[in-house]
Design a protein around this nucleic acid. Structure first.
Lengths: 189, 189
DNA sequence: CCTTTTATTAACCAGTGGTCAATAATTAGT
DNA sequence: ACTAATTATTGACCACTGGTTAATAAAAGG
């Protein structure tokens, strides 16, 4: 009713992000609506627009945060123990695991073709690939061709983008993922 | 104004399909709206629902027709001249070419995860893969493992689904496509 | 010529992302 | 403590979306 709530009930960016994250697990970017978020948060949908420029901006904040975690994971594997080939497989599996355990984020980063989202996620997706490619490259001590690394990435992308929606987590596609990674490594080495 | 137009101006399924096809080249399933189709056709959007059950039904008619062309192309290559390895590459390239020259159709068939569309396209996508897998299998004289054929398919899918939206036709990704196909064949044989 | 079938419209429904003037709660300044 | 400025929220609005349906005019059939 009142145009501003008392301080104890005030909306924060974190509250919005938390609710958005919750819904983002079950639904994708297009299925989560600002109005339903507002309803769950007990505010009007207009209030969200005070904290975030628009829908893409809100969800990109989530995507960005999660993808920085993926970069850390890749670093951990690259700098960790194990031989070249094992590490390579680990990175590939890690990418697939991330994609299937953060399906909405993956979709927004690598699949949504949308003028609103593009400006944000296009750059971030590129950066994420750079990270991937650089790790693979250094790991192979520059023996791999750039175009082959790119093909490997696209092949991983194919696996994730196909299974998205058909499995609810990486575990359900674990075996298939291992087989696919073996396939890619075979082409690569 | 009048509730029914004179016979000369009556709407037909073909007119709707034609307009939908035109817009489907430039926009994807979600970007083409029934209302805009109607506007271009000079009718009310309700009229379209007399000819098609719903939006998914209308666009699936287009997708179905185009994908049967893909199946024919694969057959042509399989039964045509050339050695095993050349044919294999040809089929892979053909799949990519089709995907990038019919991007909206490809998206609806293999990428849209939507309850309305799923029931229709899920089955058709499966059938299309069956065709692909069977051709590759017979071509290799049953020397290839089923899981490897599946991996090859997913790798092709990764190429198409990545380039969708970034290139406007196969030609713009021709070189990259050849490199990617070589990559896949390397893993396969 | 009358009746039935068929194709169309326009109003309607529930939903979407996004904007904005009005305004109440909070904070800053004196 | 009082006032002025700032800040956060609402709810009405806009222009869209897919989809449904009663009314009805044109066409077809008897």
């Amino acid at each position: 009713m009142s145009p501003r709530k008392p301080a104890s009930q005030e909306l924060t960016k974190d509250m919005i992000l938390q609710e958005a994250r919750t819904q983002f697990i079950e639904k994708d970017f297009h299925q989560v609506s600002m109005r339903n978020l507002a309803k769950q948060l007990g505010c009007s949908h207009g209030a969200i627009y005070y904290h975030f420029k628009n829908k893409a901006d809100l969800f990109y904040a989530i995507v960005e945060e999660d993808f920085s975690k993926l970069n850390s994971l890749i670093d951990q594997i690259t700098d960790g123990p194990g031989d070249y080939r094992t590490k390579l497989s680990q990175i590939f599996l890690c990418f697939i695991e991330f994609g299937l355990n953060h399906q909405s984020q993956y979709e927004m980063m690598f699949m949504v073709r949308n003028t609103e989202v593009d400006s944000l996620s296009h750059e971030a997706a590129n950066l994420s690939y750079q990270k991937f490619a650089q790790s693979v490259q250094t790991l192979s001590e520059n023996t791999l061709a750039i175009k082959d690394i790119w093909s490997a990435f696209l092949s991983l992308h194919g696996f994730v983008s196909h299974h998205r929606g058909y499995v609810s987590s990486f575990d359900e596609a674990k075996e298939a993922a291992h087989a696919h990674v073996d396939f890619i490594v075979k082409a690569l080495i």
